[in-house]
Simulated assay, not measured.
Amino acid sequence: MMSETRERILMTALRLFARDGYEAVSVSAIAGELGMTKGALYKHYKNKRDIFNSIVERMYQIDAERAEKYEVPKEKYEIQPESYKNQSVEKIMDFTIAQFFFWTEDDFASDFRKMLTLEQYRNTEMAELYSQCIVEGPVAYMEDLFRELIQKEVLKEENPRQLAVEYFAPLFLLISMYDKSGEGEDYGTILSNHVKHFIQNHVKDSGEEQE
C-alpha cells in the first residue's frame, strides 16, 4: 500500500506535469508545491524519473482494473487472444462511454492524458505513450474486437480497421471538445448516441444485439 506522503508526491507531480509539461517541472518545484525539502522527497522517490515511472505503472494498473470491471480484454490480442473471442457489443458500448468520463473527469486519468498531450511533440517516449494509451492503442484494441465480432457474424462483413477508426474517432474528438469547454455541453450523450447508431448500422440481422 502506497504511503500517504508518497501518494501526495505522485499526485502533485502529475498535476504539475499536466500543467507545465514533464520536462519543465523540477524535483525542487514538486517539493516546493508540497512544502517539503528535496531531501524529504528523495526518501520516497529516487528522482523525477522514478515518479514518472510510478505514474505510468499506476495508469496501467488502473487500465487493467477498469477492463476487468467492464469485462473487456485486459491485454493486447497477441498476449490474450481468447479474451477477445466472447465479447458482446453491449460490453463494448458500455466500456466506450465509460472511457469518455474516465479520461475527462477522473483527476488522475485527465492529468495523465494532458501530460502526454503536452509532451508528445518534444519527447519521443511520451509520443509513443500518447499513441499507445490514447490514439493508436485504442484503435488497435477496437480493431481486434471488431474482427472477432465479424468472424462470429455478430457484425456485418467489413474492414475491422476502418470500423475501429470510424468508431473511435468521435470519442477522441469529444474528449478534445470537452477540454475546450468543460461542462458546457453534454458530450457524453453525444457519444452515447454515436455508439448506439454505429452498432445499429453494423450489427448483422437487425439491431437485436444492442437491445
Rank of each mutant, 00 (worst) to 15 (best):
G207R: 02
S26N: 09
T37C: 09
Y42N: 10
F52M: 07
Y22A: 01
K91V: 08
Y121E: 14
Y178M: 10
I9E: 00
L173V: 14
L41I: 04
L173C: 10
K48A: 07
F108T: 01
Y77Q: 01
L174G: 04
Y84L: 05
R66M: 11
S131C: 12
L118F: 12
L145N: 04
L149I: 01
T104N: 08
Q120V: 08
F95Y: 15
Q61N: 06
A31R: 10
Q200T: 03
V154P: 04
K156M: 08
F172D: 04
T96Y: 02
A18Q: 05
N86Q: 10
Q210R: 13
M36H: 01
F102E: 13
A18T: 07
D205C: 07
Y70C: 05
S83N: 14
L145H: 02
N123D: 15
N201R: 13
E208D: 06
L116S: 01
M2G: 05
Q61P: 00
Q200M: 09
H44V: 02
S3A: 14
F146W: 03
Y77F: 12
Q120L: 07
I55C: 05
G184S: 10
T5N: 05
Y22H: 08
E208T: 10
S176M: 14
R147M: 06
R147W: 05
I199Q: 02
R122G: 15
G32D: 05
S181D: 14
T5V: 11
